[in-house]
Amino acid sequence: MTTELKNNDVIISVRGLEKHFKGGDIKALNGVDTDIHKGEVLVVIGPSGSGKSTFLRCLNLLEMPTGGTITFEGVDITDPKVNINIHRQKMGMVFQHFNLFPHMTVLRNMTIAPIQLLKKSKEEAEKKAMALLERVNLADRANAYPSQLSGGQKQRIAIVRALCMEPEVMLFDEPTSALDPEMVGEVLDVMKELARSGMTMVCVTHEMGFAREVGDRVLFFDEGKIVEEGVPSEIFSSPKEQRTKDFLNKVL
């Protein structure tokens, strides 16, 4: 049950999120509370091991939280009775290592989910896929296999593959971390265009420039908790917490 959300309505609500590994010894997330609004571009930063990736992966339950709740479009998706697959269709995810399906062409990569899950016809799905490929200037690679593509191309394909499912929110898990520097730009361009078009995005990234340009809010994670949050201009120029300062000194 998805109610029509107006901009700035809360689309994802996280309360008391916890993730323990190995029976409680490792606390990857130790109580996280935040609201994500429709149309918002949320940038999540922090040192490695801070739990930022775990946080992101909990949002679509790729990691199963051990405590707390996540409410997506009004539904508590942490409830075991909920069919998570339906809700995942509305959340697109882009991975650090692309995770394109190597045994399918680019076009098939993009259309398999809409055809199987959204019950779209092949023509419909392919039409939409081609349109998206045009947007990222990769229409000519529609029948190529992922192994024939460069890293930047693969990641752009991964983004539009997720977009084929017409999600309400896009989750990015360090999308440019595995790319050669010269390809980072083309991927960030796609993400920026996506942000400007009004897509709700949660991005775990080290690309501070991206955060500054299109980010609406920045979350700084450390040791499984949100240490500080605010608009990019505030966080980057005048961070309040010492840990935030230390981190930003290292990366900026």
Binding site: L62, N85, R88, M91, N99, Q116, L117
Partner: peptide, 13 residues
């Protein structure tokens, strides 16, 4: 690769 499973699941399969 485990990422294949994750990609599939995250699409909603």
């Amino acid at each position: 690769d485990r990422g294949q499973l994750e990609a599939g699941r995250s699409l909603g399969f």
